[in-house]
Amino acid sequence: MTDRRIVVVAAGLSNPSSTRMLADRMAAAAVAQLRERDITATVEIFELRDYAHQIVDNMLTGFAPQELEAMIAKVVAADALIVVTPVFSTSYSGLFKSWIDVLDPDSLSGKPVWIGANAGTARHSLAIDYAVRPLFAYLHADAISSGVFAASSDWGANADEVAPLSKRVEKGARELAEAIAAREPVTDLDPFDPASYLGEGKSFGHLLGGLAGE
């Protein structure tokens, strides 16, 4: 069996959050679909709210703090990426966009990406296609066609009976698994990870600090 690495990035602000719930559900479905293809997968989940201050620091200084740098390195080195953002004011969250802004524009080129979004009402269900998907088109990522939108009602008794959340998740998971299976595993050292050429546990911040005598 072939091992693949999936990184999940959830941009929810609360704890617990429906954004994380949707991210967990999508990740579990992707792993199940890969297992049916005799492919094992490891999943690592990052919640952006844990990196909010570091993302701002990165935007202000141009350098990622060590924890954010390590997280981004894992995103870049993953075989596939699952991203889930809450929808605020008809679009992705500011935290999610700020994270996108600190990524190298070429870092996700060709990477399979499965997009999820959630909001209080189904009126925002088109946000994936008109707001989120263009971000990954700009980054030259390979966003699969079936995104997953979940409204508050999808978690309750009044869920959509015509296209239930479980069916939408299963469909997207199948497409992601097919995209992963069609590619060779990512095995090379990540050129965006300073640990590969500065040494384990090092970062550009540490290097600059050393040069400054800190």
Score class of each variant (00 low, 15 high):
residue 91 S to Q: 06
residue 99 W to L: 07
residue 101 D to F: 04
residue 123 R to Q: 13
residue 112 P to W: 07
residue 96 F to Y: 12
residue 119 A to F: 03
residue 62 G to E: 08
residue 109 S to M: 11
residue 77 A to P: 02
residue 72 I to L: 03
residue 122 A to N: 11
residue 100 I to Q: 10
residue 103 L to Y: 07
residue 76 V to C: 13
residue 114 W to G: 11
residue 71 M to E: 01
residue 98 S to H: 09
residue 77 A to S: 14
residue 110 G to S: 12
residue 109 S to C: 14
residue 109 S to R: 15
residue 123 R to Y: 10
residue 88 F to W: 09
residue 84 V to W: 01
residue 62 G to S: 05
residue 79 D to L: 07
residue 78 A to F: 01
residue 121 T to S: 14
residue 67 E to R: 13
residue 96 F to W: 02
residue 101 D to P: 14
residue 91 S to V: 13
residue 75 V to I: 12
residue 66 Q to D: 15
residue 60 L to M: 14
residue 79 D to I: 06
residue 117 A to F: 04
residue 69 E to P: 08
residue 79 D to H: 04
residue 63 F to H: 15
residue 107 S to Q: 11
residue 90 T to R: 02
residue 80 A to P: 12
residue 74 K to L: 02
residue 72 I to H: 00
residue 98 S to W: 00
residue 94 G to C: 04
residue 113 V to Q: 09
residue 80 A to S: 14
residue 84 V to Q: 06
residue 110 G to H: 04
residue 79 D to W: 05
residue 91 S to K: 02
residue 104 D to A: 14
residue 72 I to K: 03
residue 120 G to N: 05
residue 108 L to S: 10
residue 78 A to V: 01
residue 75 V to L: 06
residue 67 E to T: 13
residue 86 P to Q: 03
residue 100 I to G: 05
residue 78 A to G: 07
residue 114 W to S: 09
residue 115 I to C: 05
residue 82 I to A: 10
residue 81 L to K: 04
residue 64 A to G: 10
residue 115 I to H: 03
residue 96 F to N: 04
residue 91 S to H: 06
residue 93 S to R: 03
residue 119 A to Q: 05
residue 121 T to F: 10
residue 83 V to H: 01
residue 71 M to K: 00
residue 79 D to A: 07
residue 98 S to D: 09
residue 73 A to K: 00
residue 61 T to S: 14
